[in-house]
């Protein structure tokens, strides 16, 4: 655990020592506010439903930007060699990096909280869906981060890592969307709906917190973190 914390702190220092973290956070909060007020005035009700339905798309862009450097840069600079010859287990490094990216994600969500507070002051807000929405956004963002982190471990090129991560996240999102499910053979519908990141997000967003959805997200996160450990180990396979 001590090593996880060490890596976590190191990554945060790197994030906040460069303009990258600030730029990503400011852009995100800016976009989120703009999208929110747009949908708020269009829907004209004290609800954040529209806002939460936009978040997955926003995260799809921002999560890869957060994770792209985490491994790709270590590979490019070859600092991986020093990191992995210290008394540190591969999974400790993976977890430390994952938590640092999660920290950024949570900062983004927290900085967009004033939106909810504003809305609640304007009308009678139903807090259930809001809490559900935030929880869903957190889980979904974490799933995207685990995907992005894994993909970052496969290349030295941050830009490539970001682009591929985006497409994988996008793919995992849309397989559960009604249009894809509609086109798919009937035998696959259940499976696709289950795999798709989106369907689970929607049910949490309604304020219905079902343990199956939680388990789903935790499984996705665990799966990609596991792949990530394997990806870091792959240096040994030659």
């Amino acid at each position: 655990m001590k090593n996880v914390i060490a890596v976590f702190q190191k990554e945060l220092r790197s994030y906040f020592n460069s303009p990258m973290a600030y730029i990503v956070i400011i852009l995100f909060v800016g976009f989120a506010n703009w999208l929110f007020f747009r949908s708020f005035f269009m829907a004209n009700s004290a609800s954040m439903r529209m806002y939460f339905s936009m978040l997955p798309w926003l995260f799809m862009v921002f999560a890869p930007l957060i994770t792209m450097r985490l491994w790709a840069e270590e590979k490019k600079l070859n600092t991986l060699e020093l990191l992995m010859t210290m008394p540190l287990k591969d999974w400790e490094a993976v977890l430390g990096k994952f938590f640092s990216s999660l920290f950024l994600l949570v900062s983004m969500l927290v900085l967009s909280l004033p939106l909810a507070i504003n809305v609640s002051s304007l009308g009678n807000m139903d807090w259930g869906p809001v809490i559900g929405g935030y929880l869903g956004a957190f889980l979904m963002g974490a799933a995207y981060l685990s995907i992005g982190l894994f993909i970052s471990s496969l290349t030295q090129n941050q830009i490539i890592a970001a682009i591929i991560s985006f497409f994988v996240c996008f793919g995992l999102w849309i397989v559960g969307e009604s249009i894809v499910v509609f086109l798919a053979p009937a035998s696959l519908v259940g499976l696709l709906e289950f795999i798709g990141l989106g369907s689970h997000f929607e049910s949490i967003g309604r304020g219905v917190i079902d343990s199956r959805d939680l388990i789903y997200y935790l499984t996705v996160i665990g799966f990609f973190l596991y792949l990530n450990v394997k990806g870091v180990e792959s240096r040994k396979w030659a």
């Binding site: 001590k2 090593n3 914390i5 060490a6 890596v7 702190q9 190191k10 220092r13 790197s14 020592n17 460069s18 600079l77 070859n78 600092t79 991986l80 060699e81 020093l82 010859t85 210290m86 008394p87 540190l88």
Partner: peptide
């Protein structure tokens, strides 16, 4: 103690932060 070829280091960390990270992992 290992110094790999061409001293790969975290360029966006300052010297003290970097060394305290290594010290931390080195227990």
């Amino acid at each position: 103690g290992y110094l790999p070829e061409s001293a790969p280091l975290y360029l966006d960390m300052d010297v003290t932060d970097y060394l305290s990270f290594v010290a931390q992992v080195r227990g």
